[in-house]
Design a protein around this nucleic acid. Structure first.
Length: 554
RNA sequence: GGUCCCAUCGUCAAGCGGUUAAGACACCACCCUUUCAAGGUGGUUUCAGCGGUUCGAAUCCGCUUGGGACUACCA
């Protein structure tokens, strides 16, 4: 068989050769150990949180090794592509401070020397390489239609045979030149298949950067490497692109593990150096009693916009994702409290083999800590940024009361033990809303978080009424609090915690309870920052009017 | 069905043949207390099961079970 002739018959117009491409995309001159990796999404929907995770890791590898991080758009499936898919991905990634050294921008424009970075535009490369494989006898044209493969599959299933295009099912594997010519003349379209030289009984050993040694069955299938539209499926695009972009570490989801053998076969046929893989476990989610992958369709938290909408600060999400990526991150963070998160070095060895459950309570905790370290101005800025998009009325209030809002956010901030009231910006209104007159408008006693299990209405009312009489805007916290204690004694509250603890039955409650009643009366909330500071900020008139309001509603 | 991957507290996880089996989140209790939080201290809870190898197994090997992925001219 004259394979060269076959290749020319199939691709008469393809002139690009392997040598041309090797020259056009030379090996990179990078320091020893530099990692060249890439994120290669398909623009088929929203940006998945798992993608952000993978990017964070990949970006870290590249940056820390003085390597290169590439964004490549895998849009060879023209049917699944969506409008603005690329934009969505890039914008989402940018929000999480992920930037690429090479790739495409929001408008689809390339930057970098190894482009183009959009697969649908790399057709000439794939065709050239497919032609090359045909010319050396490692690939062949397949004229089979869908019905044929459906039928074969049914037969294989019925016979409990392996499913695929191989052996006697590989109808076009040994077509003669004449047969090919006849098919071509008849106007039949063809795909290109790899001529597989192995079988399923053959085992291969692969070293995965995360998984360690993997023992896999070899590929036995004459897989399609060029579809009828002459665009490649993932497998061939992966081999060509990652080789010519001089990628040296492929970080991808572990759903690709079963196809490693197939991919390596393609590399080998092409004469390319086999590539190193790092297969990342997917994010999981609890459903009933079992874990499952977070699904794009079913789970809102799969979409990055979920975190944006809820108002999780970007730094919080990044911090949490780092936690998931490397278990030693937490320890590192403890020792480097103020260090930039980018200073942390992620290692493949420390990455988990099994999928981590997305743990929202943990995210909340991490996020609370992150926010607690922001200064008031930053809290204001980020909260406003969030509100502008997701809570317009609140944004207006924040803008109209900027200085005041910053004072509010300053309470017990910047101290050794900063408050941890909020984990995300959509909690701000609940936690601090009462500071703003426009947001404080209780209509019924039900809106107050009074502890009616401990104290009845009358007691609460009496305490508040009495307090209205004695309340003054004190300059000193201690003086102010002394009065509260004093007031409590009148109603039978203990003014000493130890005394109270010793004989609780002798008292109605303790001074903390008095403070709680006043806190709720003034703010409606049981949990607030330092009440003295709240009163100071609110001002005498407002405090008194709120106390009166509470009495009225009680 | 076939192929492959994975398996330590409720969750995330240290662990790499000898440990009282770390730590974090969550939960509970207590302490502190000029209130609420925060913080501090302590606690509940884990090696999926069964065999083997070994003086010794969470760790190595088998099997079983459970979970997951793949099985496209999708990626």
């Amino acid at each position: 068989m004259d394979y060269k002739k076959l290749a020319d018959l199939l691709f008469p117009d393809v002139k690009i050769t392997l040598e041309d491409l090797e020259k056009r995309y030379p090996e990179r001159k990078l320091p020893e150990g530099a990692i060249v990796t890439r994120f290669a999404p398909s623009p088929t929907g929203f940006l998945h949180i798992g993608s952000v995770f993978t990017c964070l890791v990949a970006d870290n590898f590249a940056k820390k090794s003085n390597g290169v991080f590439i964004l490549r758009i895998e849009d060879t499936d023209q049917n699944r592509k969506i409008q603005d898919g690329v934009k969505l991905i890039i914008q989402g990634l940018n929000r999480y401070h992920i930037n690429f050294d090479e790739g495409v921008d929001e408008n689809g424009k390339d930057y970098g020397d190894y482009g183009t970075y959009t697969q649908s535009q790399r057709k000439p490369i794939y065709m050239a390489m497919a032609k090359y494989l045909v010319s050396i006898g490692k690939a062949y044209p397949c004229f089979c239609d869908e019905e044929t493969s459906q039928r074969d599959k049914a037969i294989q299933e019925a016979n409990k045979e392996l499913i695929g295009y191989y052996g006697s099912y590989a109808h076009c594997r040994d077509l003669t030149l004449e047969e090919v010519e006849a098919n071509l003349k008849a106007g039949k379209k063809f795909a290109i298949r790899l001529r597989c030289e192995s079988n399923a009984d053959h085992k291969i050993i692969v070293e995965d950067a995360i998984r360690g040694t993997l023992k896999l069955s070899d590929n036995f299938n004459d897989v399609v490497i060029l579809k009828r539209d002459f665009l490649p499926p993932y497998n061939f695009a992966h081999a060509c692109d990652d080789h010519f972009m001089r990628v040296n570490l492929v970080i991808r989801g572990d759903e690709y593990i079963p196809s490693i053998a197939e991919h390596l076969q393609i590399f080998k046929a092409l004469g390319f150096e086999p590539i190193k893989y790092a297969h990342v476990a997917p994010m999981q989610k609890m459903e009933g009693n079992s874990k499952r992958k977070i699904s794009k369709r079913k789970d809102p938290e799969a979409n990055v916009t979920f975190y944006l909408e809820e108002g999780y600060p970007v730094d919080g999400v990044r911090e949490y994702l780092m936690n998931v990526a490397n278990s030693n991150f937490e320890e590192w963070r403890k020792q480097n409290q103020d260090a930039d998160i980018d200073d942390f070095v992620v290692t493949t060895e420390k990455m988990s083999k099994s999928g981590a459950l997305f743990d929202l309570p943990k995210l909340n905790d991490v996020s609370k800590n992150v926010i607690s370290k922001f200064d008031a101005q930053k809290v204001y800025d980020l909260c406003l940024e969030w509100a502008e998009q997701y809570d317009k009325p609140f944004a207006e209030i924040l803008k109209a009361n900027k200085d005041y809002a910053i004072k509010v956010f300053s309470i017990e901030r910047g101290t050794q033990k900063p408050r941890k009231d909020i984990a995300k910006w959509n909690e701000t209104k609940g936690a601090f809303g009462y500071f703003f007159k426009d947001l404080f408008n209780p209509k019924s006693v039900d809106e107050y978080e009074f502890n009616f299990e401990k104290f009845d209405r009358e007691t609460i009312k009496k305490v508040i009424e009495k307090y209205i009489g004695v309340y003054q805007q004190e300059a000193e916290n201690s003086v102010w609090f002394g009065k509260i204690k004093e007031l409590g004694v009148e109603f039978g509250f203990a003014n000493d915690m130890k005394v109270y603890k010793a004989n609780p039955q002798d008292y109605v409650g303790h001074y903390g309870d008095v403070a709680s009643i006043l806190r709720v009366a003034i703010t409606t909330k049981a949990n607030t920052p330092d009440l003295f500071q709240i009163c100071t900020l609110l001002g005498y008139d407002e405090v008194v009017s709120r106390l009166k309001k509470a009495v009225e509603l009680l």
